[in-house]
Design a protein around this nucleic acid. Structure first.
Lengths: 155, 155
DNA sequence: TACAAAATCATCCTAAAGTATGAGTGATAA
DNA sequence: TTATCACTCATACTTTAGGATGATTTTGTA
């Protein structure tokens, strides 16, 4: 037994009722203005205005709004990423200094430049990077960068 | 001397003309149906239908549609990024093969591994990467990766 | 077809990166 | 206080990356 969705036809019903009401109104007008000479013009004019308004109202009511899809950059650092960052940092056992080196690596700096930036010797940077590679289980700096980004260790 | 933008008022003018035409039509109807008994009801009915249609048309034509703005997190690849990709690719003059090498570099592969992956010699990969660095104006592969990501050349 | 890019490969050389190992220092926790 | 760990640095060595140059082949286009 199909259930009729009355709500769906609410506008149509409303429209019908309005039409009926208007007819009564017109009939009433007919009685009042039938003796006046220009009754017809007024009559038609009123009808025209009324139904134009009705048409506009109907259109506004029934038009499905356009959907504007806007693509927004994913938030720079959502909570999940931060949680994962902490987790992976703990799990891998990467130290602060190693993380420093990793970050500068990802910016494209050479070991020499990293050493200067951190005020340590080139050898120290090499030591850090070696241990970093062990902890990340990689062989090269490019791999380290790729994996670190994947693990949300760096942005 | 201000120039009136007639196009802007095209709809209004059209509406006026339509009204005028309808009045003529109505006058004509008056002559034809004045003898008929139920002429008034037909008359009004026609007017109602016509003006409802006009109202709907007006609303559709003149009113800027409501926009529902939907925000979607940019997961895959929004248009802007793709446009930038094409633009930067053109500007830098990076060739297909160089782009292949760049992508594999960003995945952390060594030149040797890239050579195997692309079925070319190590020397070829070196040539490609050298030209790539020139075109990206960088010195090292880590810089190339960083810059390429910044320019949306690679994800 | 002829010409310009693109793609391929090679050699020689230098610079940078990465591995292995050892060692000193300072902070901290058992 | 001793053991551990992070940080620092060094030497020696190997591997990989990168620069310069030249040459050949493919390929797309005027």
């Amino acid at each position: 037994m199909p259930v009729i969705n009355w709500l769906k036809y609410r506008s149509v019903i409303g429209y019908g009722l309005l039409l009926a009401a208007l007819l009564f109104f017109l009939k009433w007008l007919e009685w009042r203005f039938v003796i006046v000479n220009y009754s017809l013009e007024i009559y038609v004019g009123l009808t025209a205005i009324l139904y134009t308004a009705l048409g506009i109202w109907l259109a506004l009511k029934l038009i499905t709004p356009k959907t504007n899809t806007v693509y927004v950059e994913a938030e720079s650092y959502p909570i999940e990423a931060f949680v994962q960052y902490e987790f992976e940092l703990q799990k891998s056992g990467i130290s602060n200094r190693e993380l420093d080196v990793l970050q500068l690596m990802a910016q494209g700096l050479s070991n020499q430049q990293i050493a200067e930036r951190l005020f340590v010797s080139l050898n120290t940077v090499k030591t850090h990077s070696s241990k970093l590679f062990e902890k990340l289980q990689v062989q090269r700096r490019t791999q380290a960068i790729e994996k670190a980004k994947r693990l949300n260790l760096i942005p």
